[in-house]
Design a protein around this nucleic acid. Structure first.
Lengths: 146, 146
DNA sequence: CTATACATGTAAAAATAATACATGTATAAG
DNA sequence: CTTATACATGTATTATTTTTACATGTATAG
């Protein structure tokens, strides 16, 4: 029981961007900083763009930034959107599904999980400002948006 | 984000046994009833035995039954035991782990999930007695323990 | 016009989970 | 005491899912 790395990466990117507001960050830099596959991250970012979480700018000096304020994006919203399935058990092929008491219980539990992460925003995860950015060996402030 | 089928099968077996207390059920019958791999189920059951959930009897007329009352076994206990990892994100390889605010949030959410399933016992899942047993096409009461 | 950065589809590789196979051990029945 | 049945257990194969790589396209700044 765990989130896919896809969702994990999405959260990492969003935190990265939240820690550096009003900057356009290049995917290549983010992937290098985290030590992650650039290609894979590109797709994650593309999805984040498609879903309205980030805004991207092509071409030289391009990059991505949050499309909405960090204080408006909850962890729950991101996880709900990126993770495509919250069915804890695959009842489709189970013969007792119609009379099974387990599934409602698992649903209730899943809702409790989501309710917690719905209470936290990206801004709260990065409460210490650019604090965690200094953990990157090659950290140096990127250029501000002109 | 879902339970492994291994855990799923474990729960199905336990519900099956809870619905027919004081019966020794053969794995071959359970696997046939659910339409599940007999070999795979054997390993699940073996684990359930090793962990003290079921009691098995070898040889002719052998089978398995609950080792503890159904009202004493919670869904949470089963899931916690069968599912080996509740780490929602793999922080081991993430450079910002030391300053990351995400993990505590995911932990809190996971605990909320587990807290819910801790509240339900096998007996409660089978509140309607052998009700769901009739869903098996070949259902007929098995012999009682002598 | 060229270098850079995102966009996007396809394919391969890796990791994980599920299943099959083979063989061993225990027990009841005849 | 022999045989049929049912659990025990290790190894190997298959299937599924996830992750990564590759190739090529499009947009923009300088």
């Amino acid at each position: 029981m765990r989130l896919t790395r896809y969702t994990d990466y999405a959260l990492r990117v969003l935190m990265y961007l939240a820690a550096q507001p009003d900057q356009f960050c290049a995917i290549s830099k983010i992937s290098a900083d985290y030590g992650i596959s650039h290609n894979h991250l590109t797709k994650v970012v593309h999805d984040l763009g498609r879903l309205g979480f980030v805004q991207s700018l092509r071409g030289r000096n391009g990059g991505i930034q949050l499309a909405r304020p960090a204080s408006d994006i909850t962890v729950g919203e991101v996880v709900r959107t990126m993770e495509d399935d919250f069915t804890m058990a695959d009842c489709a092929n189970c013969i007792i599904a119609p009379g099974c008491g387990l599934n409602p219980v698992l649903e209730e539990a899943t809702n409790a999980f989501l309710a917690v992460i719905d209470r936290y925003t990206l801004a709260e995860l990065c409460r210490s400002g650019t604090g965690f950015m200094t953990l990157f060996p090659a950290f140096h402030a990127t250029r501000p948006t002109t």
